[in-house]
Amino acid sequence: MFDFIEPAVFALLTIAIVAGGAGVVLANRITTSALLMAFTFLNVAAMFVLLGAETIAMFQVLIYVGAITVLILYGVMFTPQSPRPYGLFFQTQKWWAAAFVAPIAIFVALVAFAFRDSASAGAKGGDLVPLATSVFRDFAFPFEVASVLLLAAMVGAIVLVKRDED
């Protein structure tokens, strides 16, 4: 009966991903590009959920929508963009921002309210258990190498942007 839901959600996500990606390339204002990139990443995360990879979707939101978008926005902030003046995207549009955030907040509150009794929501673990087994058993050594890579990248980034004190 609800067979049409999954293809419908997939079609909506596809439209959002393609439109967002095209917006990143075509947008004139670089801040718009960065925010559209975050929008595209969110929709890709939703597609991961559609595929049944909830853990990957959570990492996607944390790392891409959280960390990488913020880094890119810092890069936008520290480099000069076009000569024409414009304000920050949401600075002059706080009511748009509120209208955008309020449905999300209401939805989160409703979900939290709906699950208030179930102590072990998601006790099945989804794809987390096989993923963790795979990472920490079969790929333990590459995992450690990845941490070394992250450390090297962090040190390298700091050294590259450090000002010479002398």
Partner: peptide, 19 residues
């Protein structure tokens, strides 16, 4: 999915060093 996690790591390193 494990490969995806490693791509996350590489992407984070890449964007930090790239910026």
């Amino acid at each position: 999915s494990v490969f995806v996690i490693f791509i996350f790591v590489v992407a984070a390193a890449e964007v930090a060093v790239g910026l």
